[in-house]
Design a protein around this nucleic acid. Structure first.
Lengths: 181, 181
DNA sequence: TCGTTATATATCGGGGCAATATATTTATTG
DNA sequence: CAATAAATATATTGCCCCGATATATAACGA
């Protein structure tokens, strides 16, 4: 899913400026998509050029003028066609697991710190997702499902980290010097 | 984690050509890192220029000549320093969840197909990871842990998909036309 | 009042990814 | 047996993405 389609997806839910689109992506998709201004602004320029969105400048008191973008009918059709043609892929990038791959090269204290940071991160993600699902009763079933999905993954991983970290540190040390008892 | 550090990590485990590095990354890191030749070859050129790796051309019978790269002492030191300085981050990109976010715009049959594809994909990933962990007794504790991590996530998500898909499809349809019984 | 955060748009450089080019050999399949 | 596909091997290209930075204003808190 590229930034253009991400923008069309947000504009499907209502008009927004580039700045507001970024914030909406963070609010709505943050646990499974990300992007940046360096992608959004060029994407909006291209979408405008293609006639998939239009905009009007909205002057504000005591705020910079903003460009409010609207999805055009052509944009709505194109977005639907993209949805129909998109394969349900997933990718996971983890520097944490890369580091664990080389844990035998690192000091025990460093490994302990990495495991603790990762555990804290998973707990924090889980809390955020659970708060959203509990405090927003008007979510569509699809949106609710994306939260359930994130909660299921984070819960399972948090349980693994909590049950496995101590033994793992011992195993890494044991493998380091096989001669020591 | 950028492609240069990925290459150093692989070369830490033994000498290899660019082609072999790509295959080693797929074999060893595929469930949490990815890269391509378009990144690997420029990275190796840069690493050679920096003196972090060296290479010798190895002519082969009935195969193109290959450049076999070796980690230098400077490269080993630099890789260790990178490991010590890397934050244990994680990111998840899911076109599947993006599509679920807009499930109410798609025909029921399309949604059913998406859920089935995702379920099949999770099952296949789980099978691969379980086969590796069962058939490779010589893995380091860290490597074994990365597999346990992937297995835990895939198991939890597979359970969710199997228990939730049917009801989800009904809920999406029900939300589509609130007036229909 | 001084630093931080928020609103708002935009560009730049380095890097990443998918596709493509080239060449040879082995394996498969009709 | 011949045609085709897949594997081995290196490399480039073009498009896209991301983090950092620039610019400007204003609200907020210490």
């Amino acid at each position: 899913m590229n930034t253009s389609q991400l923008c069309l997806g947000i504009l499907c839910l209502g008009d927004a400026s580039g700045y507001e689109i970024k914030k909406a992506i963070e609010r709505t998709f943050s646990h499974f998509q990300a992007t940046s201004y360096g992608s959004i602004y060029p994407a909006l320029a291209k979408l405008t050029h293609q006639g998939l969105v239009s905009f009007h400048e909205q002057t504000q008191q005591k705020r910079p003028t903003k460009k409010v973008f609207t999805l055009t009918e052509a944009g709505r059709i194109q977005f639907f066609q993209t949805l129909m043609a998109t394969e349900p892929t997933e990718q996971h990038r983890s520097d944490f697991l890369f580091l664990m791959m080389f844990a035998h090269l690192l000091p025990t204290e460093q490994n302990r710190a990495l495991l603790e940071k990762q555990t804290a991160h998973l707990r924090s993600e889980l809390d955020i997702l659970e708060r959203i699902i509990n405090e927003c009763p008007t979510l569509t079933p699809g949106m609710r499902f994306t939260l359930e999905y994130g909660i299921a993954a984070n819960r399972a991983l948090l349980r693994l980290m909590q049950g496995r970290s101590t033994a793992l540190l011992r195993e890494i040390d044991a493998a380091r010097s096989p001669t020591a008892s």
